[in-house]
């Protein structure tokens, strides 16, 4: 019985960090040139895998929030791979001439500022980020 209780505690302790910030805490933002209010999960995945470079009539480019729980949470939920695997994927594109490496930023403010000034940019930030000059895309 004590062993079972200990295992429950261990399981909770293991899962706690992973569930502390989940994809529901992520906001998808876009430059106002993207005349959409929502994006499908498949399209969002395509944008970040660079297999899709348009949304509606707008040309789009992905913008990354570098490392950390936020990126990992976003990648696992919407791209289907962890941030390390996504970086490996991008490198396979960059070193074969298939695509450029997406822009990466350390903070929400930097992501918001870049997305706001860059035509077609699509990024993700934490739910508490201050959003100026960008539109929020709902994920369908």
């Amino acid at each position: 019985m004590k062993l079972r209780t200990a295992l429950h505690i261990l399981t909770l302790a293991t899962l706690a960090p992973a569930t502390a910030l989940y994809a529901g805490d992520v906001k998808i933002i876009a430059n106002p040139s993207v005349a959409e209010t929502s994006v499908s999960a498949d399209d969002l995945k395509g944008i970040f895998l660079q297999t899709k470079n348009s949304l509606g009539s707008a040309h789009v480019i992905p913008v990354l929030h570098k490392g950390g729980v936020l990126e990992d949470s976003f990648c696992q939920k919407y791209v289907g791979r962890n941030d390390s695997a996504l970086q490996t994927y991008y490198r396979s594109l960059v070193f074969t001439g298939r695509a450029l490496m997406p822009k990466e930023f350390d903070t929400d403010d930097e992501v918001v500022a870049y997305v706001a000034k860059t035509k077609g940019a699509v990024g993700f930030v934490s739910a508490s980020a201050k959003l100026d000059g960008v539109v929020v895309l709902a994920v369908k």
Binding site: N53, H59, V94, F95, G97, L100
Partner: peptide, 18 residues
Amino acid sequence: GGINAQTQITGKLRAGGQ
């Protein structure tokens, strides 16, 4: 080893080499 350079010329056009 290798070294490459790439740029996005327009939204649809990209060029580079390695």
